[in-house]
Design a protein around this nucleic acid. Sequence first.
RNA 1: GGAGGAGUGCCCGAGUGGCUAAAGGGGACGGACUGUAAAUCCGUUGGCUAUGCCUACGUUGGUUCGAAUCCAACCUCCUCCA
Length: 417
Amino acid sequence: MSEYTSEFLTVLSERGYIHQVSDPKGLDALCAKETVTAYIGFDCTAPSLHVGSLVQIMMMYWLQQTGHRPIALMGSGTTRVGDPTGKDESRKVLSDETIEDNKAGIRKVFDKLLTFGDGPTDALMMDNADWLLGLNYMNFLRDIGRHFSVNQMIQRDSVRLRLEREQHLSFLEFNYMLLQGYDFLEIYNRTGCRLQMGGSDQWSNILSGVDLIRRKVAVEAFALTSPLLTTSSGAKMGKTADGAVWLNEEQLSAYDYWQYWRNTEDADVERFLKLFTILPMDEIKRLAALEGSEINEAKKILATEATALMHGRNKAEEAAETARKAFEEGQSAEGLPTVEIARSGLEAGLGVLSAFVLAGLCASNGDVRRNIKGGGVRINDAVEQDANRQLTLDDVTADGVVKLSLGKKKHVLLKPV
RNA sequence: GGAGGAGUGCCCGAGUGGCUAAAGGGGACGGACUGUAAAUCCGUUGGCUAUGCCUACGUUGGUUCGAAUCCAACCUCCUCCA
């Protein structure tokens, strides 16, 4: 199934976005014939999406680029229920207000990559709260529930595995596929959308919508999932020491975002170039052919291109330049993350411990002490071994800052104001 | 409704009266080696106004000189039966 005729599926396929498609030939024919509307759902559990969702976002980008219409579905309705799919039972109950705030933050990402509007291929933003919150249980059971076969539902991997291992499965979880299926039907009715995409873990939920649409309105709908991404050494994408790699600049600076991609493992470079940049394929092949330390060139391009998509070309170039100065010339370039402190505080003397905590480099004074002991703490590029060292105005460099470093990669400039 | 089991640090998981800020593993962070990579090796991994003090083993109370460890009640989760 590697040969597609439609531009959309060809691009997705050669760039590695496709894990499973419900009816490859049928979908391919549809995409080649007409403007297809497709949607992906996002829950509003955090104020920003992170790189874990980036594959899905990029699929929407390519959908629009190849002449189709994407719909970003905000799952603020399902978020109010709480997605039970995660194994952690300790999920917070989010207030309506928080969910609305989160939704606002998440929308920003889509504005960067998709063109919204009323044209035939302009993207749409929808919210399942609009139809889920007012749902009447009896009506839902009668109109939607009747079309779901429990016999089939328990065949789904997500359910079957739980049952086979005699693990608990709540009725709420069991219902989740109905809700998501209903979303698909509702969106089809409103927009004629016939394709739902998502991560591979969403496969069975998407199929339930495909089935529902067939039963309810006798139309063939399609499911397309992307592979679950891990790094070559098996770690989940998007997790770092400080938490998730957020897409919004309020949560993660463009510089840090650039650094995240710059530190990609060798083995992932080609895959990530295809998935997370929009560079042409022959350019990617050229970069992927680099070996040894030359791979670093490919990583820099990956970082700059990926950052440009999220934060704009200027911010990406700045981040690249800052990194070049900091790492290749050893200067304390201006673009490094900067924390402002009161000049009076420095005059009085500021302890190293406090300084590193203040700068956000360490979690606690003890954390700083440990790193001092381990030789990982530097002030203005000089290793500091005295935990009682006081920073004063004498430590301010010609650039008007004090450069604090933790390890070789993390730098923060303290700027007295 | 009945019977049984479980809740330990970021996660998994030992511990069943003092030697326990709590084995071991994972993860993470720092160091060495490199290419701001991987692998490997070494170190660290509750907080503080720090030779001491405080907080911590689901919650609350109790027994005890002393409890993560014993007792009681409660909460939560799980399994089986109905």
